[in-house]
Amino acid sequence: MSLFLQSLLDGLIAGSIYALFAVGLTLIYGTLHFINFAHGELIMAGAYFAYLFMMPPLHLSPFISGGCAIVGVVCLALLMDRSVFSPLRNANSLLLLIASLGISLFFQNLAQVIWGAEIRTFPFPLERGISLGPVVITPVQAWILIIAAGAIFLLYLFLKFTRAGKAIRSVSDNPRLAKTFGVETERVIRFVWIVAASLAAVGGVLYAADTNLEPHMGTINLVRAFAAVLLGGVGNVWGALIGGIVIGLSENLGVLILPIGYKDAIAFCVIILLLLFRPEGILGVRWGVR
């Protein structure tokens, strides 16, 4: 029983991080209509930027480092868009997919050139987890839950109550219609990149805090995010959030039944099953926020 509860908690923590990845990916898919393979590298970049600021010589506090990482990743995302995706605005989605695959390959290996292939860890002090009845939670994990929930709440406020947020939703709903109503599409796209990159950065830092860093960490997280996007229905922000949590839970509960080695295959299985049986997603309504 305690194993089940512990897995449930771990699944929830992992899931809340995946949710942040998935929202960004679904926003990009909703507005630009392609699967951004390089989203995984935004996640990876977030983690490594934070690492860079936390380690000597800078030695900044984790929170300041995280903030710097967000700024860095947003710049990176805007650079990607300006140099590659923007010239391809009207291209076939497969071409965009290949281009993003190329970008992903580029940055993954750039990180390996700079930081090497080995695993790295944030310089947090080693602490025993806190026992809450049958389960154990480390202080870092508690922070992860708080920060992830905070990020989601901020996102909600942004989409619901700001002009930019509303514009994003209308463009994602129907770009042509939004244009005729005077929504400036390019501006909205820039907002989408900023939001998606910030969430990827926050999620990347949290993920690295929970586990460790390595240059290829983006790919598997992209897959998890994509599975979550499909679960929620493409373009559906709240669907992606719930999808992320479902993926986190199914990975951590899945290994209670499956051999541990198949943990990383669970998200792939979800993708294939969904594509085959419910390509429109499980969570029904497009665009939860109306």
Partner: peptide, 29 residues
């Protein structure tokens, strides 16, 4: 030496992006 493999992959990634950018109009259509 340890940089060769990743730098080669970086180069491959770059080539993919550049070709897609260059052939956007005519390619595979």
């Amino acid at each position: 030496g340890r940089l060769i493999a990743p730098m080669q992959q970086m180069f491959f990634g770059l080539v993919l992006v550049l070709i897609v950018l260059k052939r956007e109009k005519s390619w595979f259509h």
